[in-house]
């Protein structure tokens, strides 16, 4: 087995553990798009834990990236420029909040809690991702 699969599984275990602790402590589903997105609504009252969680997330990733060259691998896929990242950010932001969750909220938490709508959402965004990468491949071009 490739070592990346083992690191993937181990990282996934940490993400699952994190989500479980987050759910237990906050009693809210700790999907990243919701944790972040609700900070952008003026009448959200439980701001402090959201900020603390996100600071922890940035610190946890930053620490490992700083400590390990293997973890620090960062490659931009072919043909993707900064303008594309600006557009992709807009679409991801809109889609995750409009659809009520992202890879963590629907993919890990909702699915892990047995919510069929989250399983459906996960299937839908995965398929949309497969199709998008395929179209990008055959249509080519740089954005």
């Amino acid at each position: 087995m490739e070592s990346s699969y083992i690191f993937g599984l181990a990282g996934g275990v940490l993400i699952g553990l994190s989500s479980l602790i987050g759910l237990i402590v906050t009693k809210k589903i700790p999907g990243i798009s919701g944790v972040f997105g609700r900070l952008l609504i003026s009448d959200t009252e439980d701001r402090s834990w959201r900020v603390v969680f996100l600071v922890g997330l940035i610190a946890g990733a930053g620490l490992l990236i700083f400590l390990s060259d293997a973890v620090a691998v960062y490659r931009i896929p072919e043909g993707r420029g900064l303008l594309l990242y600006a557009i992709a950010g807009l679409i991801v932001g809109f889609g995750t909040r409009y659809g009520g969750g992202c890879t963590s909220g629907h993919g890990v938490c909702g699915t892990g809690m047995g919510a069929r709508d989250s399983m459906l959402a996960t299937g839908v965004f995965m398929i949309a991702g497969f199709v998008t990468v395929y179209l990008f491949r055959i249509l080519g071009g740089s954005v």
Partner: peptide
């Protein structure tokens, strides 16, 4: 909550 965030970020990077 901070620990939870740390684990999430570490998990994303490690994976």
């Amino acid at each position: 909550v901070f620990l939870s965030g740390l684990l999430f970020g570490a998990g994303l990077a490690l994976s």
